[in-house]
Amino acid sequence: MIEVKGFSFTYPTGSRPALTDVAFEVAPRELCAVVGGGGTGKSTLAGVVSGTVPHLTGGTAEGVVRVNGRDLAETPLSGLVGEVGLVMQNPFNQISGARFSVREEIAFGLENLGVPRDEMAARIDPVLEDLGLTGVRDRSPYELSGGQQQLLAIGSILVMRPTVMVLDEPTSQLDAAGNALVFDALGTLKEQGVTVLLIEHRMERLARAADRVLVLDRGAIVAQGPPGEVLADERLEEWGVSPLRYTVAARRAAARRLWPDRKPLPVTLDAAAEGFGETAGRLYRGDRGDRGDRGDRGDRR
């Protein structure tokens, strides 16, 4: 459970707040996504919820952040280890550098938590399997591709079984298969009752997987709601977020009356196919909308 109330934060060298009056909650079994432009405070928010900001960064904070009921201002970072997992944006910053193989790297967190050896094996192998890393288990983390390192960084946190999981763009370097593995893993976490806060730029899977989407703009939450609502908002680009092509196509089609009236703009393939299927059916029946008036002049971008 994550609870953030009236939270503002300024970095020690910052001239303006990185976060302003942020308030939201994420419940267990909920996947809440955070989207927004570059430098709008998303990674800072990830740090706040995982306790590294301001404990490690310094700076001035106002407001309350509670994780599983504990006030983070009064909880030392060591008290959160194993309970809150943070997957950092750049896997290179996360890989310990102290271990010689992928398997040992995944074991590293468990060693530090003092997990018995036989239990370690039972926890590590399924994580390797789920993230498609079994084939590279004996390689050095530094011999992996960027995408594989990203999966390793995720695995090294998953294996500690945190009850709150914060991921800062975990799929940025992943191919479609890796992306699917990560979202499958997140789905399983949710079922297990984990609270998930996910910062993400790639919208298609997010649109299907997220229960709720928060938009951060210049350190403030400017919108929050179900993905179908937030990701179809016409202000999305102004907020620095690329809309899905499905939404763009439907919005342009709607301007030419080629998207069904009253149907919300789609953020998934299914919804787009349903809406455009209706349009095609209507055209087939001979109802050409207002195309007769506008003809084929222009608007053929």
Partner: peptide, 12 residues
């Protein structure tokens, strides 16, 4: 996609 849409008049 939008260029082809008006011509794709079959019940899909």
């Amino acid at each position: 996609f939008l260029e082809r849409l008006p011509a794709e008049a079959g019940p899909a």
